[in-house]
Design a protein around this nucleic acid. Structure first.
Length: 486
DNA sequence: TTTTGAGTTGTTCGA
DNA sequence: GTCGAACAACTCAAA
């Protein structure tokens, strides 16, 4: 009997849910008491510990998970410090004989987890990891010659020629609590919430709980999903899923999302198909990150190592603060700051302006997004920025330079989005909302806009910026040729 | 091994 | 206003 009481540790990471959770299932099947654990191990995250917005979300997700566990008489044991050390300590304190977790795919984490697994097994414990985060493990999808894919379309075709896995049923009620609980730290002491009131608008924008994610999924599938092909491009509408932070923290799993979608809509048709492809891009990003682990800092395309970026603190800061003088871009940057999220169409535009017009390194943009996005995800963020800069998988060709006025007119024709996030321009007529500097003095005065004072002039002329970007690419070709010669 | 067709999201220019 | 071509060349994936 006493040996039966030796518990299992269930190590939560980015899988903060009690359903479709294979590590939880393994712990239950093992038949021992279950001790759920979360370890705050910022050093273990390498160069990418959670940014400010992510920490806000994490705080609430952990609080929510604690409440869900309590329903079943379970607690979430919180520890901080090195994962290896914390786990060994817990094993010692509790007499645990097994540790279960769900995988992560960042290079530093893979290395760390591998050492932990070997170390635990060396001590005679059962240590097993599972897949809760992806539809397809990165190493299972191979091109005909056996290597990883670098192009999305054939990658996704191969994925879909397999069947999409179903969610795994989990029954947390079957998890039994231990005879006694080890010590836990207090979530509040981790001070994950920002000190100032940066997050004051986050609460209106998000319900960072499992239930909130589920509600969002159903609202999306009942509404915007049907017109996703069009609506996802209109930042003034609620046309996207907004599920990315739930996916990042594992409050919803991609298997659950796909399965729910399939129960309501034909996943092969119309808007639903477009959305499933977005899940595919998430998978593809993980595929690339796994097979090319340096990509968070190094361009996938090696010739971009020579790209003549022109880092400039002032330009970067103007961009970060939403003061570039381009209303669509500024609206996006301010939405990001206010809500921890930015519409996808606008993400492409702000990224294009930063790396093309302003010639700032894509890594600087990625770092800012990492700190300010509630959905900051190393795989998706990296691939998104590399794609924008033209150095990533299936990168946008160098000559694809977004025109922020044209994009604004096409996707935000009445300026709804700009008016919401750049209120000092709200009274401008539609005709000038995306290029106020072309309005007459009378129109500006009528709208209460004083260019250069209440709202900045463009930091760079569009045509000039575009040409600068095209010229930089010319230089890149030159460098690439030189380097192959030598 | 060689060949062939294709590759998320755009802009501009000229007919 | 609309439409197609040019913007480059390369690499990937599969036959």
């Amino acid at each position: 009997m006493s040996s039966k009481a030796r518990p299992s540790l269930l190590w939560f990471r980015q899988d903060l849910r009690l359903h479709d959770n294979p590590a939880l299932n393994a712990a239950i099947e093992h038949g021992r008491p279950v001790i759920p654990v979360y370890i705050s191990d910022e050093a273990g995250e390498g160069d990418w510990p959670p940014g400010g917005a992510s920490r806000w979300w994490l705080h609430h997700a952990l609080h929510d998970l604690t409440e869900q566990l309590a329903v079943h008489g379970l607690r979430l044991i919180l520890r901080h410090g090195e994962s290896m050390q914390a786990l060994h300590s817990l094993v010692k304190e509790t007499g645990a004989e097994a540790v279960y977790w769900n995988r992560r795919y960042e290079s530093a984490i893979i290395t760390r987890d591998k050492e932990i697994k070997e170390s635990l097994q060396a001590e005679g414990l059962e240590a097993k990891s599972f897949n809760a985060a992806l539809l397809f493990e990165p190493w299972t999808i191979k091109s005909k010659n056996g290597g990883p894919y670098k192009v999305f379309t054939p990658y996704w075709r191969t994925c879909l020629s397999n069947s999409v896995p179903k969610p795994e049923k989990s029954d947390p009620a079957r998890a039994t609590p231990p005879m006694s609980w080890p010590r836990s730290e207090n979530l509040e002491d981790w001070t994950l919430l920002p000190r100032l009131d940066w997050d004051k608008n986050f609460y209106d924008a998000w319900t960072p709980t499992r239930r909130g994610g589920w509600a969002r999924l159903h609202a999306f599938l009942d509404g915007a999903a049907h017109d996703y092909g069009r609506g996802r491009d209109v930042p003034g509408e609620d046309g996207t899923s907004r599920l990315s932070p739930y996916l990042h923290f594992g409050q919803l799993g991609p298997r659950e999302i796909y399965d729910t979608l399939k129960s309501k809509i034909d996943p092969d048709r119309g808007g639903a198909c477009k959305y499933v492809a977005e899940l595919g891009w998430r998978e593809f990003s993980y595929h690339i990150l796994y097979h090319f682990p340096e990509t968070p800092t190094e361009p996938l395309d090696p010739k971009f190592a020579h790209f003549p970026w022109e880092p400039d603190e002032k330009l970067l800061r103007a961009w970060q603060r939403g003061r570039t003088g381009y209303p669509l871009v500024d609206a996006g940057m301010r939405q990001l700051w206010a809500t921890g999220w930015m519409h996808n169409r606008v993400r492409m535009n702000v990224a294009s302006l930063l790396v093309k017009h302003l010639q700032q390194p894509w890594q600087d943009g990625a770092r800012w997004f990492w700190d300010t996005l509630v959905d900051a995800d190393l795989a998706s963020n990296t691939q998104g920025w590399q794609w924008s800069a033209g150095c990533g998988a299936d990168g946008a060709p160098y000559f694809r330079v977004f025109n922020p006025m044209t994009q604004g007119q096409r996707f935000d024709p009445h300026g709804d989005y700009v008016r919401e996030w750049v209120p000092e321009l709200a009274k401008l007529p539609d005709a000038f909302i995306h290029h106020p500097w072309e309005a007459s003095a009378d129109v500006l005065k009528e709208a209460g806009v004083d260019l250069g004072d209440t709202y900045p002039m463009p930091v760079i002329d569009h045509k000039q910026g575009r040409n600068r970007a095209l010229m930089a690419y010319e230089k890149l070709k030159h460098f690439a040729k030189e380097s192959t010669k030598s």
